[in-house]
């Protein structure tokens, strides 16, 4: 009796299973995409993604050197973006100091030699992207922008000595593409100098524009 029961239940089950087989085979055929992709699937890992946290660029502008007129300034900088807000920046710049009012009025007096008038500086800074945003020059054109604050320390080689220099300022960055940016910057450089009598804190003002590339 038990055998018969088994026969009754198992035979239809087996038949159903056999019938279902081709159906599942057809179903797996359907899952294949109509167009085979011509690329092999690549697993996504961290080191396969092109990471571009560095930015390198040059700048040019004016440097107003306290007591020594204004002059052209050129420089270069390397930036590392720590996060979307913070970045490290290492910068160098050169300018040529002019004459003091005293030298101009007195005529043939020279406070500094020509080589001492070479103004060179480097600085290491921390920046903060305070206001990320967008600029719309025309109706159909939008650029990403950043207003940032920046400050740091470094050294200024000027008037025969190397002087510890603090700097602080702000800048406006316009990203022409995701990889190319234009910068406009205004910064103050503070250092101690004793060339004209008493030692005092001198302030040089930098106004510059630059171009940089992310890599």
């Amino acid at each position: 009796m038990e055998n018969r029961t088994e026969y009754l239940f198992l035979t239809p089950a087996l038949l159903a299973g056999l019938l279902a087989l081709p159906v599942t085979a057809v179903a797996s055929d359907d899952e294949r995409p109509l167009i085979e992709p011509d690329v092999t699937p690549v697993p996504v890992t961290e080191d396969r993604i092109d990471t571009e946290n560095f930015e390198v660029g040059g700048f040019a502008g004016f440097l107003t050197i306290e007591d020594f007129e204004s002059s052209w300034l050129v420089g270069a900088k390397l930036t590392y973006h720590l996060s979307e807000a913070f970045f490290f920046e290492a910068g160098v710049g050169v300018a040529e100091a002019g004459e003091t009012s005293f030298e101009t009025l007195a005529g043939n007096v020279e406070v500094l030699t020509d080589s001492e008038r070479e103004y060179r500086f480097y600085n290491l800074n921390l920046g903060y992207n305070l206001l990320p945003g967008e600029a719309f020059p025309t109706e159909g054109l939008a650029f990403n922008t950043n207003f940032y604050l920046i400050g740091g320390a470094g050294a200024t080689d000027f008037a025969g000595d190397t002087r510890f220099t603090l700097n602080a300022g702000a800048g406006y960055q316009v990203l022409l593409t995701d990889d190319i940016a234009v910068h406009l910057e205004l910064r103050q450089h503070f250092y101690r100098i004793d060339v004209l009598g008493d030692e005092k804190t001198a302030i040089s003002t930098q106004a510059s524009a630059g171009l940089s590339v992310f890599f």
């Binding site: 990471t51 996060s83 979307e84």
Partner: peptide
């Protein structure tokens, strides 16, 4: 398609 990464963002 992942193009590039910058800090905590991917283009």
């Amino acid at each position: 398609r992942l193009l590039q990464r910058r800090t905590r963002w991917i283009r």
